[in-house]
Simulated assay, not measured.
Amino acid sequence: MESNNNTILITGGGSGIGQALAHRLHDLGNHVIIAGRRLDALARAAEGRSRITAIQVDLDDATSIEAFAHRLTIDHPTLNVLINNAGIMRFEALEHRRDLADAEATVTTNLLGPIRLTNALVDHLLTQPSASIVNVTSGLAFVPLVVSPTYNASKAAIHSYTVSLREALKGRIDVIEVIPPQVKTGLTPGQEQREGVPLGDFADDVVMQLCSEPTRPEITVQYSQYARRAEADGRFDEVFAMINGG
């Protein structure tokens, strides 16, 4: 994607990685649309920035996504960048029978949400100059954290989906995968206080890489590259033990 003069949609833009990217991309001279379920969080994220637009949408509901996409392309016809960032992470115990509500919600939000929204917008994006689709996955797509099995699996699935999407849209839409390490956000309770990459540092790195090489297929920071290449480098068991405290 180009560094400025885009109209960018970021899902989950009211907090965390989505908000940090929205602010940086706005400040580079882009019109940024942030979307999510909580209008109050979106309004706070947009405050003081004239070219950030907040739109409420339920990204877990297929009908809501279709209506949102239709309205979006009418109200913002220059939309040319989609950043699928919204996601949830739930801890699950696999050692006994359990209620699968968390697992099902994770699949709906993290996997079906981006697939549905991309499907709803792809025809429009194909008509736009310098169009890009950016999917935010996780280092845990490559080396799983045992306590979040469905989250890991959903991100691994989006990684695979992104590879296919990139090939299918080659030469027409740039498809980019952003692979975060553990970033200090509110994705899970207490995550801001645990060891990890500061949110500002991560967002700065991502935007710098996007701008310096707009068509690069993957964006990693130092720590996510460690997990991304673990299997290829023959270090999977080592990294798995490190991530899981072994």
Rank of each mutant, 00 (worst) to 15 (best):
N4Q: 14
N5M: 13
N6M: 05
N6E: 07
N6A: 07
L9C: 08
I10H: 01
I10P: 01
T11P: 00
G13I: 00
I17P: 00
I17K: 00
G18C: 02
A20T: 00
H23F: 11
H23D: 08
L25D: 07
D27K: 11
L28D: 12
H31E: 11
A35D: 02
R37W: 03
L42Q: 01
A43S: 15
R44F: 11
A46D: 03
G48D: 06
S50G: 09
I52M: 11
Q56P: 05
D58S: 08
D60V: 10
I65F: 08
E66K: 07
A69K: 05
H70T: 13
R71H: 11
R71W: 14
T73F: 04
I74V: 10
D75L: 14
P77I: 12
V81A: 12
N84L: 07
M89V: 08
E92P: 12
A93G: 13
L94Q: 11
E95Y: 14
R97C: 15
R97N: 15
R97G: 15
D99F: 12
L100K: 08
D102Y: 03
D102S: 03
E104I: 12
R116S: 07
L121K: 05
V122N: 04
V122W: 02
D123Q: 15
H124Q: 15
L126T: 06
T127W: 04
S130I: 11
V134S: 05
N135P: 02
N135Q: 10
T137Y: 08
L140S: 07
A141H: 05
F142T: 01
V143F: 02
V143S: 03
P144H: 10
P144C: 06
S148E: 09
P149E: 05
P149C: 05
Y151M: 01
H159D: 11
S160R: 15
T162Q: 06
S164D: 13
L165D: 02
L165G: 01
A168H: 13
A168I: 14
K170G: 12
R172S: 11
E177C: 03
E177P: 04
Q182S: 15
K184D: 02
P189R: 10
Q191H: 04
G196V: 02
L199S: 00
G200T: 01
A203Q: 00
D204V: 09
V206E: 01
Q209C: 11
S212I: 08
P214G: 09
T215Y: 07
P217I: 04
I219S: 03
Y223F: 14
Y223S: 11
S224Q: 04
S224E: 03
Q225I: 11
Y226Q: 12
R228P: 06
R229T: 14
R229L: 12
A230K: 04
A230S: 05
A232N: 13
A232D: 15
F236T: 09
D237A: 09
V239I: 13
A241C: 14
M242N: 15
I243H: 09
G245F: 09
